[in-house]
Nucleic acid binder design. Structure first.
Length: 288
DNA sequence: GCGCAGGGGGTCG
DNA sequence: CGACCCCCTGCG
């Protein structure tokens, strides 16, 4: 049973910015410029026209409730952008470029696995791996004549051997996924408990005990999952580059100290550093 | 067109 | 600090 949700005159919402800024891997652009994606047991199409956004598709629950949560619609991004724009003209320009960004509320388990897959990898391949994992261990949902596959549950993925994972093209990440899945299934790390934790640092330290999760991956999980921490600053090659170009001016980019970047980000962007990171990352990657 | 080298959302030992 | 799976891309 399909549902539809129409949003009119919604600010800070551009499909391209939201789906291409690097936070998600399961949304694809169609011929008409709309995006179709899968999260949870929902397969939705998001079509944007001037002053009107139409979300429609198969929804597990009330589409309005599901989308308000997933697209973070209860947060005032106008206010956030206004505040961050005052930091300096660099950030202001990056915000102007990515003005339609919203940080999605994505499933914690899915984010853990997806960002482990992302390490030393490129986006087309990351998407391919996640699709193959879902095809093999997820459930099929048909939508407009096409098959979509839900992200595997913890239980489903824990039936995969290291060899099974390797066959999906995971490469050296096979054992990371295997170990991490086992650890979560055994309850060594309790995701439900983690969702109720308050202290970002403590959450981060817990995530860092997972195989394949280092500082960058941990920060991405904290920022893009339902944990929704904005007081983190994931540092990858693009962020290192943009921070060096803007503020540090080290002739050898690779030698820029991570601690220096972290300190700078905290000083300048405060407890909104995570969102600032997204604007800067997206701006630099698209305009390098 | 096709083959081949280069490199990629970092992490681990 | 170097190795790491694989495949995606770009160039010859």
């Amino acid at each position: 049973m399909e549902q539809t949700y129409v949003l009119e005159n919604l600010k800070s919402f551009k499909v391209r910015d939201i789906f291409d800024c690097g936070q998600c891997f399961r949304w694809d652009e169609g011929e008409d410029g709309s995006y179709t994606g899968i999260f949870g047991n929902n397969v939705l199409n998001v079509k944007q026209e001037p002053n009107k956004i139409t979300i429609s598709g198969i929804c597990d629950g009330d589409i309005k409730e599901v989308c308000n949560k997933y697209f973070d619609l209860d947060r005032d991004y106008e206010k956030i952008k206004e505040k961050l724009s005052q930091v300096d003209d660099y950030l202001k320009e990056s915000i102007k470029y990515g003005e339609g960004i919203r940080i999605l509320n994505q499933d914690l388990w899915e984010m853990i696995i997806s960002f482990i897959v992302s390490a030393n990898n490129n986006i087309p391949r990351i998407k391919g791996i996640i699709n193959r994992m879902s095809q093999k261990y997820g459930n099929k949902i048909e939508f407009h004549g096409k098959d979509y596959f839900t992200f595997p549950t913890i239980e489903a993925l824990s039936t995969a051997s290291v060899e099974d994972l390797r066959a999906l093209g995971l490469g050296f990440r096979d054992k990371y996924i295997y170990e991490t899945t086992k650890k979560i299934k055994n309850g060594d790390i309790n995701l439900e408990h983690m969702k109720h934790e308050n202290d970002t640092k403590q959450m981060r330290n817990e995530l860092l005990t997972l195989s394949g999760v280092g500082p960058k991956v941990a920060d991405c999980i904290l920022l893009f999952s339902t944990l929704k921490r904005f007081d983190v600053f994931p540092i990858d090659v693009w962020v290192r580059r943009v921070m060096n170009d803007l503020y540090i001016h080290n002739s050898e980019e690779s030698k820029v100290n991570k601690k220096e970047i972290e300190k700078l980000a905290r000083e300048k962007y405060g407890d909104l550093e995570g969102i600032a990171q997204q604007y800067l990352f997206y701006w630099k990657r698209e305009n390098n």
